[in-house]
Design a binder for these strands. Structure first.
Lengths: 361, 361
DNA sequence: CTGCGTGATGAATCTTGTC
DNA sequence: CGACAAGATTCATCACGCA
């Protein structure tokens, strides 16, 4: 990250103006919960701070969308500039604004990875019985562009979901009870405070320790609070001094998880790479050993250089597995088995044993 | 309805051209499943090496967002002209196209009433582990305009949902098995046939008997089939003669339900399932907490992704319990304990306490 | 007739590192 | 930049065949 980047701070001001002062490609992840006053009840401001004159006829509704789109393009454009080329962005909204947000994100070059449904366990009912209970909000998760090598902690998400792939629909409660910040009168301080559980999942999925997370619409600071807890760095922007004050007090109370307690289920790709040949060299699978596929229908012999030989064929554990099964590709580690002490073990066992040894060393 | 309206027929042709021949304000409801503009780059294989049969049909090829938007504005514009002033429209899509659809609908003057999430009970997994399982599609339900006195059968929807207000997230299976139309080779006739249960709910919610339902992208005729079954009239448009032929044969087999027997299919309920990770996310058992077996002979620490760590070992509550006791399996919920307010409690206590248990469907 | 094992399949923007 | 090699990756459901 750039030397002149303010970090672990909440900056006061209009988000577009403040973002303009920050350097390119300086954040790894953005979480944004933008306003969606499309109904023209409250005032809608253009990026230049002028107030949109909202009246209730069709023409001005159109003006309302236009102004909202202009504002959206401005802040999303800056967010994209600030995002590292392999970074991702989360944007949350409801049917009032999410379609405009998504279309503009695509127009600006973001590459949508998923749309995520936050299913609320305790939504407000529809009191008049004129529509379906509005029981969800939508998040868009997107990479900076189609070529981004984005971060996705697949195994950690799978672990969070009882060892099944995490789906695009998330069932989480609203922010209520003690988690909900209150003002002096005991009323909710912020109208749309998000639950920490939602941020926990998004940040755990898409960032690693020490990553920089930007929240352009900080509010009462849920994003910085969870970022801090999870050992990520943050940068947040907020207009209202009352919210900043509350968020800063909240951040004081957050305890950072120690580094050794932050570890999550690692991706296999992240493990140190071990060449198959090293097991031949160190004698744990000597040259000459016979290896089999799981059903023992195929067999091959280990060569001193770590290749396998079967009949006239020779190749790496992957190549030979693919060749003999007529497959396009093959993960040799999980394809081939050997016998040890009467047990029939995958050769990946050797790799796992080595990883465990290294962790304790 | 106008006297010159063709009814209960499938018209052959390009949807925009055909719609232009129909009179203003002549339909009560539109259901549209337009091309999604998927941009598939190459072949995708399952982990078992089998090839996924993706959507590569010509009708889903567009040169870019602009071409797709132009097409979308054209058919949505005609659909709005054909819609009665109190009529509503349903449009279904995925993250590839739904944001563009929604934004254009708003621009054209439609008034969004709900966005509805079709949660698939059996979605295709993400085979490469690079994203969340894409487990839902989105429907937009909109009135012709903000002043429309639209139809919403609130009590029928409530009855469908065990006397609770119908929510905006619907849990329904894909169209598979015998319901899925097959060609002469026993393969799926249409790549994206929708389940009748989905149409059943949409038409039951937003129309009354004898209403006219228009489907501009008829495909194999799910909309007309359900419309006929429910005693609604229909009009459908389709380009491909093969699909029309199949749809007409299908319609022959559909029996109209007698008015007094409009079947109420109960909503499909899901088994409540609470991943251990939920309690880590929502803070009731924060990452870093130490858990013990009943005799306090073993201990482990909770990770941010809901796994437990003990020494070199990491795994789910079940796996780690089994591993440390050398057992084949273990019910982690009753095996592990934690301390709270001086009490020593099983982690299953959390499951029993939570309101998550009460309503997950 | 039931139950169990096997195989097939679904609107999918589905890899990464080294030479 | 391209070519090549290593290697990571799946869940629910249904039809069908066989015991």
């Amino acid at each position: 990250m750039k030397a002149d980047m303010p970090l672990n701070r909440i900056l006061r001001g209009e988000c577009v103006e403040v973002m303009k002062t920050l350097p390119d490609a300086s954040v790894n992840c953005v979480f944004a919960d933008p306003p969606y006053n499309l109904q023209l009840r409250g005032e809608l401001r253009r990026p230049d701070e002028s107030v949109v004159d909202g009246v209730d006829d069709d023409w001005d509704k159109f003006t309302g969308y236009e102004a909202y789109d202009e504002f959206t393009r401005a802040w999303l454009g800056e967010a994209r500039r600030l995002l590292h080329k392999d970074g991702t962005i989360w944007v949350i909204g409801s049917y009032h604004n999410i379609f405009r947000l998504g279309a503009i994100m695509q127009d600006l070059g973001f590459w949508i990875l998923n749309d995520i449904i936050w299913r609320k366990s305790n939504p407000m009912p529809n009191f008049r019985g004129r529509r379906f209970t509005n029981a969800h909000e939508t998040l868009i998760w997107a990479a900076r562009g189609p070529e981004s090598k984005y971060r996705f902690n697949y195994q950690a998400m799978k672990a969070l979901n009882e060892d099944l792939q995490m789906r695009s629909d998330w069932y989480l409660p609203l922010c209520t009870g003690n988690e909900r910040l209150k003002n002096d009168h005991g009323l909710k301080l912020h109208p749309t405070q998000k639950p920490e559980s939602l941020l926990h999942r998004t940040l755990l999925a898409a960032t690693v320790e020490d990553d920089v997370v930007l929240d352009p619409f900080c509010g009462t600071g849920t994003t910085p609070a969870v970022a801090k807890k999870l050992g990520r760095r943050y940068l947040a922007i907020e207009r209202h001094p009352d919210y900043i004050k509350a968020a800063e007090a909240r951040l004081e109370r957050v305890e950072v998880l120690p580094a050794d307690q932050l570890e999550i289920t690692p991706a296999k790709r992240e493990m140190p790479r071990i060449p198959f040949g090293s097991f031949v060299e160190n004698g744990s699978l000597p040259a000459g050993t016979v290896v089999y596929d799981r059903q023992k229908r195929l067999k091959a012999r280990v060569s001193p250089d770590g290749t396998l030989v079967s009949g006239q064929h020779r190749g790496s554990i992957h190549k030979l597995g693919a060749l003999l099964t007529n497959a396009a590709s093959c993960n040799g580690w999980t394809f081939w088995y050997f016998e040890r002490d009467g047990q029939f073990l995958s050769i990946d066992t050797l790799r796992q044993e080595t990883h465990l040894l290294r962790r304790t060393a």
